[in-house]
Design a protein around this nucleic acid. Sequence first.
DNA 1: TATGAATGAGTTTTCATTCAT
DNA 2: GATGAATGAAAACTCATTCAT
Lengths: 233, 233, 233, 233
Amino acid sequence: MTTSSKSKMHQSKTRRERVEDREEAIIDAARDIFNEKSFFKATMAEIARAAGVADGTVYIYFKNKEDLARAVLAQFYTGLTQSAQTGVDKRTGPKAQIKFLARHHMRRVRENWRLLEMLPLIDMTMDTYEGSDLYKLNRDYVVVFDRVAKVAAEQGLTNPDTPLWMLRDIFFGAMDYGVRTMLLIRQNEMINSFVDNLVSLIFSSVIAHQPTGPDNVLKRLESIADRLENKLE
Amino acid sequence: MTTSSKSKMHQSKTRRERVEDREEAIIDAARDIFNEKSFFKATMAEIARAAGVADGTVYIYFKNKEDLARAVLAQFYTGLTQSAQTGVDKRTGPKAQIKFLARHHMRRVRENWRLLEMLPLIDMTMDTYEGSDLYKLNRDYVVVFDRVAKVAAEQGLTNPDTPLWMLRDIFFGAMDYGVRTMLLIRQNEMINSFVDNLVSLIFSSVIAHQPTGPDNVLKRLESIADRLENKLE
Amino acid sequence: MTTSSKSKMHQSKTRRERVEDREEAIIDAARDIFNEKSFFKATMAEIARAAGVADGTVYIYFKNKEDLARAVLAQFYTGLTQSAQTGVDKRTGPKAQIKFLARHHMRRVRENWRLLEMLPLIDMTMDTYEGSDLYKLNRDYVVVFDRVAKVAAEQGLTNPDTPLWMLRDIFFGAMDYGVRTMLLIRQNEMINSFVDNLVSLIFSSVIAHQPTGPDNVLKRLESIADRLENKLE
Amino acid sequence: MTTSSKSKMHQSKTRRERVEDREEAIIDAARDIFNEKSFFKATMAEIARAAGVADGTVYIYFKNKEDLARAVLAQFYTGLTQSAQTGVDKRTGPKAQIKFLARHHMRRVRENWRLLEMLPLIDMTMDTYEGSDLYKLNRDYVVVFDRVAKVAAEQGLTNPDTPLWMLRDIFFGAMDYGVRTMLLIRQNEMINSFVDNLVSLIFSSVIAHQPTGPDNVLKRLESIADRLENKLE
DNA sequence: TATGAATGAGTTTTCATTCAT
DNA sequence: GATGAATGAAAACTCATTCAT
């Protein structure tokens, strides 16, 4: 590569573009390696090799291994949010949208679960997770769900007693766990059935939600019984 | 522990007992360190120091670091299953039992979440997770839930369309995820509220078909009164 | 084990005998392990296990690993010398005796070559090899050859210009080397042919001056016939 | 090594040259340490220190300790073969050439005997010694002898009954053994005398090699006596 | 910017040896 | 004498990170 070629205006890539290409190549390579071997078993040399750059070059773009991992997760979440939102926009009605989100999430998690395991390893270390870039990106992602769930709630499709954040934890938690057991011991293609059940559960709670007088009393009595029982331990 | 069981009065412990104590001391120390620092950041030297033994001693009891981690998880699951079952036995009715299991699970996971993160690191490596000791212990634990959930299903308290294993994944998944978000950004003491919502979600799908009758609540209250009386004697 | 049983006169072994048995058992086990794995790859625990004693017991009989190795080699050389001398005594004429020694040596070395590799590892460390016990035992062994070779020289069967010690080095050196190449790349059963050639080389230099007379051969055959007759009685 | 080969005058070495220097420095250091302390007693840290590099640097050039030892032996054998062949080429006549080879070998072995002891430790481990690089290098070396010995045989200077490989084993075996006893208990400078005797032995065997009728009968009778005698044991 | 050789702290693991029982 | 659990010094090897070119 001669220096003269760099000065021409009609060259295909600007210096900035080339730099961005490199950065992306490194992130892509890191994502694959991290996802294949987990954060601790992956080595920087391996990642550099996969990216087609020298060991030292990685440190020009990323301060250290953890920083690189953060960038990988950031890229992952950004893409995830984007495709999630795009899919939601294409659909009508909260139920269809949530179903899409569920399927979309499970597929992506299934392909990248080892990547996602890095999150607590990396970010929880920092006392200041809230406020961190990664936290914000994760927030952006779940907001896609939140918006749809809010509409569902407004339409009376979900149980008004369950706060949104809890619904969200149940939604994502069930899927993350489900993906793992599917990977381990179940056929891979139960995602659709899993999603149907999960979504119908979330929506079904409201079907009969018409508390009457005696029901309320019973509920309160049950709650009292629970509390007494737990104290008995 | 009675002293009478020892053959010689002038020595507090037999050699065998001391060996067992040591093994337990090492497991205990390892559990604490693993839970504090995660598998990869914990060092064997650190664990040995915490257990009050020399570095080499750990290797008398455990073949290597992974083997030690396996023992830690085995001990954890065994205790978890035991206390779960004990708590279930003390309660009447699937709903109360499931509520107990949920609270119990969340409390334990909250204190040991980094420990539980070791599981995929260790056991997924083996191609034969099914059939591994750890798999069996985990199985034993979820079976406690399965039994209760089965009764609930038989009583028509849950949605008959949702298979048991899916209910299980939703149950445990929601909690594991919930614990994390609580640790990160929410007040620690939302567990009760979270559990109430999760359980009501699981049961709610049929709430209208077979409402909890006054009989059940009365029975539970009577049972609680009995136990309180016994305790106060 | 009660003390009373030790005081009885009719017991099969005296205390001293039992101690000697143990010592021998340890040496035997050590010999096998050393020969199988070499000095550095063999572990004391392994040897103790093979000998059927506890780790610490080995150190009652031998100061340390090197000391044990020395004892093993001493036992080996003692036996080697003994069987060499016995075989020589049974034969008549230097040539037959040397041939026997050669075959005997090669067979033993072939079975124990890794054992013999310990010698330089152990004894050369000491600046005072001459004067060491092992040196003396090795000396005793080669003396068996020396005596026969001296007779051969006196009978003019060997080249009078070659000093005895050189003949000895050639003799043993050729065999030790030959055994190795046989172990590595040649059929195991070339020993006889190798010996014939080596011995004929040593003797051949004078083959023309004093050809083996018919008398000698006749004498040997007569001696053999005698012994066969004795054996058949 | 000429300076003209470098592209820039102001730098003494190119990066590539420095890398090669380092590799050689490590091999040289390793050779010295291995030769002084033997494979197992030498430590990688010690070798690194002697080579003037950090511990980790050694592992850039050699996969592990065994690999380093292999490189040391390879370098040793390559040099040995080269100087042997050069010396042979300078001389005329098989006898003079063999004498040179003998002296050359003994001098080199005397300075490096502990190095050569590594060979069985390293290469015998591999089931496939034949075909290994080290085997080939060793082969190349003995071939220098083989070629000369073949000429000697063709000129009728050696006993035609002794196969070449046996002559080779006797030649090298006698010397390796001789070096050891010289190191241990004899004056160092007996090499020349040893070589003269060994070579004359190898060549003398043929002096009188003209088997006549009665001689053959005697030989056969002797062989029979041998066999009978060995059976008598 | 890019390179990749060099670094060296840090880790796991082994094993000869000791010593309380 | 016998035991075997405990010790802890070593040693091999790894890898994130740096820096001269």
